[in-house]
């Protein structure tokens, strides 16, 4: 089947059991996407499928034929870090670094969701079409990404820096 990974189309032959996560890690040597639980409970495997954040561990790769997948390896532009990657460093938004790619990919997908007005469980006014990226909104929306080192504050700080500025523009 044909699948696009970080802008590059590739032909892969797969066991239908292979998850998108294992396709990336074990077949394409793209280890940036992490396996934390393999059961949809930690968010470490978050990638973007056509811009939407999903859990690659619960995604059978065959279901993503023809789709465009972005992983952490595709974020840096010509060696220059994505602004959110830099913000994670600046705000010390990680310690061991294992949940980090998932946090970053999730945040990028999340920002797009806020941008198009998707509400969250903490949004007071469901009818509102613009939702300010408050700390509570970000914390709720990032709750699918576990961090055990306890870098939560730095992660939200980094996301706030990048996407609050964007929202203000």
């Amino acid at each position: 089947m044909l699948i696009t990974i970080n802008g590059q189309g590739m032909e892969v032959a797969l066991d239908p059991r292979t998850s998108l996560l294992d396709l990336l890690r074990e077949h394409l040597e793209l280890h940036g996407t992490k396996k934390g639980c393999d059961q949809g409970a930690c968010g470490a495997c978050t990638v973007l499928a056509d811009g939407e954040r999903i859990l690659s561990c619960l995604a059978l790769a065959v279901q993503y034929e023809g789709r465009s997948i972005s992983t952490v390896e595709g974020l840096a532009d010509d060696g220059r870090l994505h602004p959110l990657q830099q913000a994670f460093i600046d705000h010390d938004g990680f310690q061991c670094g294992y949940c980090t790619p998932g946090q970053i990919c999730s945040a990028i997908g999340m920002a797009a969701e806020i941008g198009r007005g998707v509400p969250s469980a903490v949004t007071a006014d469901l009818a509102a079409t613009t939702i300010p990226p408050t700390r509570d909104e970000l914390r709720e929306r990032m709750s699918g990404n576990l961090c055990r080192c306890g870098a939560h504050n730095g992660i939200i700080d980094a996301i706030t820096e990048i996407y609050s500025a964007e929202a203000a523009e």
Partner: peptide
């Protein structure tokens, strides 16, 4: 090691 970690490297 920050750059390597945020890049998934």
């Amino acid at each position: 090691d920050g750059p390597r970690k945020v890049k998934g490297e």
